[in-house]
Simulated scan of single mutants.
Amino acid sequence: MRIKDFLNASDASIHRQTKWIKRFLETYWVVIALHLAAQLFSYFFLPYEIEAGAFYYKVLAGPTLLMGGTVAAAQLVDRYAARYSFISMFTAGTFVSMVIIHLNMDVRIIGAVMLLPIMASAIFFRLDLTMYTAALQIAAFCILYNWDYRFKAFLNPFDLVSIPLFILVGTLVAGIIIVNGRELLHDLETTMTAKQDLMAENALILKISRTDALTGLFNHMSFHEFYEKALEYGELGVPFHLALLDIDNFKGVNDKFGHRAGDLVLSRVAYTIQENIPSTDIAARYGGEEFAVLLFEPTFEEALGLMERVRTAFSETRHAELGGLAVTVSIGLKSFEKGMTKERLFEDTDALLYAAKRAGRNKVITPLQKVDEGSVAL
């Protein structure tokens, strides 16, 4: 691995792994503290052939300060030069390992400490990082062997072969972990992408099944689902109102101007309704040229005002497809009262709609209004 390639690693990738770098650096402090505690325990409770002064200076204070200074330097690099965080982190870890090996070389398996940084690097799923860490361990072994005479004297010919071999094997194992981990992540990403696509398709299918293709409003089936839920809330004291709208003389529009023009009129009625009612209200194309609206305004007067606004806005809309003519709608409006069945509320509102038709069309009729044929007592 080339250091240049390592330094060119993506800043975004480094940023994603910042928390793990900080955790590793914090772990180094734990290792230093545990090593300090182990040395004190060994000195006081195990045979330890060294004078107190030499112990506190050469074994305890000096090495601990060196290791702590190295870790502190790595933390400064992580804070002020984050691009070099990986290099500083594993360099500091290697130096800590060297010091621990130097102080505990009489422990036969202490050389295995060199495997720990290599295995730790695998957590980042980066082969370049593992190769860099492995190279650090080889360099550390060579430094200890050539410049630490006590370490060199302690090693036997088997150690000279086994320790580099262990480092090599550890690197291979870490590499296998990384490759398998990347494959698992790829499979997981593929699965998640497929799941997201499926969810999007299901959402689209659900939307299509619940809405009218021409107007974009809820369809007949969806309206009844909302209608039944509104009745449940109505029995609990939540006010709501039902409005039924029907386009006046729509058959004449289709017969004279064609079904294409009729479809455009239907779409504009739907648009007018949506533009004039709150997003919390439910508008649906109930069938043909008839629309149903569930209004959840606190008062009947507010609901009536909305329906008048819809009626007025549409009556003032001119249609180029109809030679500049306007089309009107008739509306029946009634509020829900506790104990009222869904059939009764719908039938009463439908009767109001037809009363508006009989009264001359382009009207909003409610139970409180009078029409030419007499009072509408519902």
Rank of each mutant, 00 (worst) to 15 (best):
L264A: 15
A303K: 06
A261M: 02
L266N: 07
K251T: 10
E301G: 09
E321P: 04
D255W: 07
F291N: 12
A292C: 10
E275A: 14
E275V: 15
A261S: 13
R311I: 02
T272S: 12
L245V: 13
T299Y: 03
G252Q: 15
S267P: 13
N254V: 05
L322F: 07
L306V: 09
R260L: 14
L264I: 14
I273H: 05
K256G: 13
E301N: 14
A320S: 14
A303D: 05
E316A: 06
S267N: 13
H259F: 06
V253Y: 00
A283K: 09
T317V: 06
R318H: 10
D263C: 08
S267Q: 14
L294W: 08
R309D: 01
R285V: 04
S267Y: 03
G258W: 02
L244M: 14
R311F: 02
R318V: 14
A292W: 01
L306R: 04
S279Y: 07
E301Q: 12
M307Q: 08
F291P: 07
G323R: 05
E289F: 00
E297F: 09
N254E: 10
T299L: 13
F296E: 01
L266I: 11
F300A: 03
I277L: 01
E302S: 15
G305C: 11
E275W: 04
L266M: 06
E275T: 15
R311T: 00
D263V: 03
A313R: 06
A313D: 09
R309L: 02
I273T: 00
H319I: 00
G258R: 10
L322G: 08
I277E: 02
E289P: 01
F300L: 10
I277T: 03
L245K: 10
K251F: 03
G288Y: 01
G252I: 15
E308S: 00
T312M: 11
Y286K: 08
A283H: 05
Y286W: 12
F291C: 13
A243T: 09
A283L: 03
T280W: 10
